[in-house]
Write a protein that binds this DNA or RNA. Sequence first.
DNA 1: CTCGGTGCAAAGGGTTTGCATACAT
DNA 2: ATGTATGCAAACCCTTTGCACCGAG
Lengths: 142, 142
Amino acid sequence: MAADAPAAVDAPARAIQRSTRQLALVLAAVQDSGPTHPTADAIWTTVRRVLPRISRGTVYRNLQRLAADGRIAIAHVGGRTVRWDPTLAPHDHFVCERCGRVDDLGSELPAASVAAAERSGHRVRAHATVLYGRCASCRTIA
Amino acid sequence: MAADAPAAVDAPARAIQRSTRQLALVLAAVQDSGPTHPTADAIWTTVRRVLPRISRGTVYRNLQRLAADGRIAIAHVGGRTVRWDPTLAPHDHFVCERCGRVDDLGSELPAASVAAAERSGHRVRAHATVLYGRCASCRTIA
DNA sequence: CTCGGTGCAAAGGGTTTGCATACAT
DNA sequence: ATGTATGCAAACCCTTTGCACCGAG
């Protein structure tokens, strides 16, 4: 997804893992989230409609695990709140600075910057490009 | 500068502003930070060597103001901590996932993604590209 | 003299973690 | 039976804020 700092981009296929109702529901919540790029809290709210006693901690732990397993992707989109993305293929993001909406874009490899980084001796594992601005619905407002 | 979510990219030249020792020292700390892309706390530590009683709050407030005035830039580089950048010209970043080091790169306009966003009716104001991987010193380790 | 900036300390918001218990295997 | 995953609550980390005092203009 060309988006994340630590976290995994490829699926290291974790060790044994118990299949719990909580894990399944967290995964489903991300996969069914459409283009909303939900926050952990949004996912918690969604899952709680089915499993009212699930804790925030469990949601966070399961999101981390799913990302480590390469089953969902992390989207660091600026700001302090991490967003979660069901789309595993690399892609860029557009963020509306007014309403917070996050849109998926295609993936564009920053070839020149990657080359520059490698020229400095660095090994590049992933890249993330985020565009900031006003979305179609917000561009006329304020 | 191809890096920041909210924040300003152009310098709206703020209203009157008192020149305090604190403000000057915070600005100097960022400008003299070399390629380290310091965190607010690192800047606080630096300034405190000269002004031991300066508070974190003042550092944060001054960093925000300097950014709003376009005198320094924000670098959202993934992760929870904001980093500050004396380089105002747009440029991409490389982040080492092992040691946290942040390197400046050139600026590469994601033309195709910008076009895609505009095709969707969005107005793009800024863009940020971050590369993740192992820096030259860390690529052999672990 | 004024009122914007500062220091201090407390509050905030998102995320992580320690611990006893519940449950998948 | 075994030990991982859960729920709960407290801890953490970074950042923001309220308030009384200080000091730049």
